[in-house]
């Protein structure tokens, strides 16, 4: 079991009122599985991904990654897991605008302490995998949205993660480019036996997943 959540609950306090974003979610995900979490905006998809991705902490409940109870980990250990075992893909790509495509891909490797030569080799290999090796030295603003998301995918794969969390990866793309990106992600995860959780409100994206969960008002069905 690569990901497991037990009674996961997240409550946000806004002023005097409490909003339950995630309500008692229990989830078990096997290695290499592609999961889609489908639901409307505000259903809690991003919050769930943030909790699984150790960006946020639950109010109640626990997240187990590779059998490790993450509630027992310190901030630095959580950071290291995010860096080395999880790849993040964001709806708005979140590439650093002052770094080129290759530098964006090298970034997680640099943070993980790879040598510069290794960083460059692997970044080029990943950019080639997503079909962008010829655009390696372009800055994000010089790329199309589809290309930006490809760079983001390459960055997510940089440190050989066992889990990829993709939050609305096609949200900013037209349907054709969106499908291309989803297929690319699907193929890459299958090849590398990577577990992927995709949060989406797009049914087409969900169709290529192994398991589809519906999320509404913080509850998973």
């Amino acid at each position: 079991m690569i990901v497991e959540t037990r009674n996961l609950t997240k409550i946000y306090h806004v002023g005097s009122s409490a909003i339950t974003a995630i309500n008692d979610v229990n989830l078990k995900i096997e290695k290499g599985t592609i999961i889609s979490i489908v639901g409307p905006s505000g259903a809690g998809k991003t919050t769930l991904l943030n909790l699984i991705g150790l960006i946020d902490k639950p109010t109640f409940g626990k997240v187990f990654l590779g059998g490790i109870d993450t509630s027992l980990l310190g901030e630095n250990e959580r950071r290291k897991i995010r860096l080395t075992r999880i790849g993040f893909i964001f709806q708005t790509f979140n590439l650093l605008p002052h770094l080129t495509a290759i530098e964006n891909v090298e970034l997680p490797m640099a943070l993980a302490g790879f040598t510069q030569r290794k960083q460059k080799e692997r970044a080029l290999q990943l950019l080639s995998l997503v079909g962008l090796d010829k655009r390696a030295n372009h800055f994000p603003k010089q790329l199309s949205v589809g290309e930006m998301q490809r760079v983001a995918i390459a960055r997510a794969l940089a440190n050989n993660p066992s889990l990829i969390l993709a939050d609305e990866p096609t949200g900013e793309l037209d349907s054709k480019t969106g499908m291309e990106i989803i297929r690319l992600l699907h193929d890459l995860c299958r090849e590398e036996n990577i577990t992927m959780i995709v949060a989406t409100h797009d049914e087409k994206t969900a169709k290529i997943s192994d398991v589809v969960y519906q999320m509404l008002d913080g509850k998973l069905k």
Binding site: F88, L96, L111, R155
Partner: peptide
């Protein structure tokens, strides 16, 4: 802010 948040999310240490 967004760049910094992205860096933190992908595992950059505070020192960075």
């Amino acid at each position: 802010r967004r760049d910094i948040a992205t860096l933190v999310a992908i595992g950059a240490p505070k020192v960075a």
